[in-house]
C-alpha cells in the first residue's frame, strides 16, 4: 500500500524537500489569481503616477511653468514604477508585491527559498517576453504547458509563485443536522479506512454544505460500493437517493465520523 506522502499528486501542488528531510507542499498559483494580483499592482502604480503628475502640474501652474526638473522627476519615477516596482518589492519583502500580498501569493525559488535580487530582476525583466505579442499571451501559454504554472521569467529565474495557506487549526468536521447517537451507534466503530480513503472522506464531508443534496448523493453513490462491500451489516437499506438525512452522502459522513471517533459538535479549539 502506498502512503499519501509518497504519492505524486496530480494537482497544482509542488513538493519541496527541506534540509530537515521534511517535504513541504506548496500550492502553486494559477494564472487567474496572479492576474488579479497584477491588476492590483497596476492600479497602485497608476495611482502613484497620477498623484505625482497632479502635484507637478499644480506646482507648475503655481510657478507659471513646468520646469525641466519636474519633468525629470516624473520621468525617473515613471521609470522606477515600470521596471523597478516589482523587482524592489519582490526582493525586499521576500517575494511579495502589494498585489501579491492581498491575494496571499509569494514568489519563491523552486527549493522553497526566498528569492534574491537577481532572481527578481530576471523574472520581471522577462515580462517583456511573456507579454508578447500582447497582453501576456505568450506567458499564459507557457504557464499552461508547465505543471508549476511558470511563465518564461519564472523558468529563467528558477522561481514559482505559490499560494500561502493560512488554514486554521482545529476546525472540526461539522455535519448538519448533527448526527444522533443512534445513527452513530449503527455504524461500525472500528471501520478500517486506508489513509487515502480517510483523506477522501474528510474532504468530502468538509465540502458537503457546498454541494447540492442530489449532487452529494450522486458523488457518494460512486464510492459507496467500495465501503458497502466491506461493511454489509451497516450498509443494508441505504436508498440510492433520498432526503439529506438518509441518503448515501449522509451514510458516508457518519461512517467517517464514527471511524475517526471525532465528535462533530466539539467546540473549535482556537
Amino acid at each position: 500500500m502506498v502512503t499519501p506522502s509518497t504519492v505524486e499528486r496530480l494537482d497544482t501542488i509542488a513538493s519541496v524537500d527541506s534540509p530537515e528531510q521534511v517535504r513541504f507542499e506548496y500550492r502553486v498559483a494559477g494564472p487567474a489569481r496572479r492576474a488579479l494580483a497584477y491588476v492590483i499592482d497596476l492600479l497602485i502604480k497608476a495611482a502613484v503616477l497620477i498623484v505625482l503628475g497632479g502635484l507637478l502640474v499644480v506646482g507648475g501652474v503655481k510657478y507659471d511653468q513646468l520646469t525641466g526638473w519636474s519633468m525629470g522627476v516624473y520621468a525617473v519615477v515613471a521609470f522606477a514604477m515600470e521596471w523597478g516596482y516589482n523587482v524592489l518589492f519582490e526582493s525586499l519583502t521576500s517575494g511579495r508585491t502589494p498585489g501579491k500580498r492581498v491575494l496571499r501569493l509569494r514568489v519563491v525559488k523552486e527549493g522553497g527559498h526566498p528569492i534574491g535580487f537577481i532572481d527578481a530582476l530576471l523574472r520581471n525583466l522577462l515580462r517583456a517576453a511573456d507579454f508578447l505579442p500582447s497582453g501576456y499571451a505568450l506567458g499564459v501559454v507557457v504557464m499552461g504547458l508547465d505543471p508549476r504554472f511558470r511563465r518564461l521569467g519564472d523558468l529563467m529565474a528558477g522561481t514559482m509563485v505559490v499560494v500561502e495557506e493560512h488554514s486554521h487549526l482545529g476546525a472540526a468536521v461539522r455535519l448538519s443536522p448533527p448526527p444522533t447517537p443512534q445513527e452513530l451507534a449503527a455504524m461500525p466503530s472500528a471501520a478500517r479506512l486506508e489513509p487515502a480513503e480517510r483523506e477522501a472522506l474528510d474532504l468530502f464531508v468538509r465540502r458537503l454544505d457546498r454541494l447540492g443534496p442530489a449532487r452529494a448523493d450522486e458523488l457518494a453513490g460512486l464510492v459507496l460500493p467500495r465501503f458497502a462491500d466491506r461493511l454489509p451489516a451497516a450498509a443494508t437499506g441505504i436508498p440510492s437517493s433520498g432526503s439529506p438525512r438518509t441518503g448515501p452522502a449522509r451514510w458516508l459522513a457518519l461512517l467517517y465520523l464514527r471511524a475517526t471517533e471525532r465528535r462533530p459538535t466539539a467546540p473549535r479549539s482556537d
Binding site: V22, E25, Y26, S94, G112, H113, E199, D202, L203
Partner: peptide, 28 residues
C-alpha cells in the same frame, strides 16, 4: 503524516512549515 492525522491539521502544519522555511533559509 505518518500517523495519518486529519488533512486539515496536515495542511496547517504544512503551510506553517513552508512559511517558516521560506523565512529561515533567507536570501542575503
Amino acid at each position: 503524516r505518518s500517523a495519518g492525522y486529519d488533512t486539515e491539521l496536515l495542511a496547517y502544519l504544512d503551510g506553517l512549515a513552508a512559511r517558516a522555511h521560506n523565512m529561515l533559509y533567507g536570501a542575503r
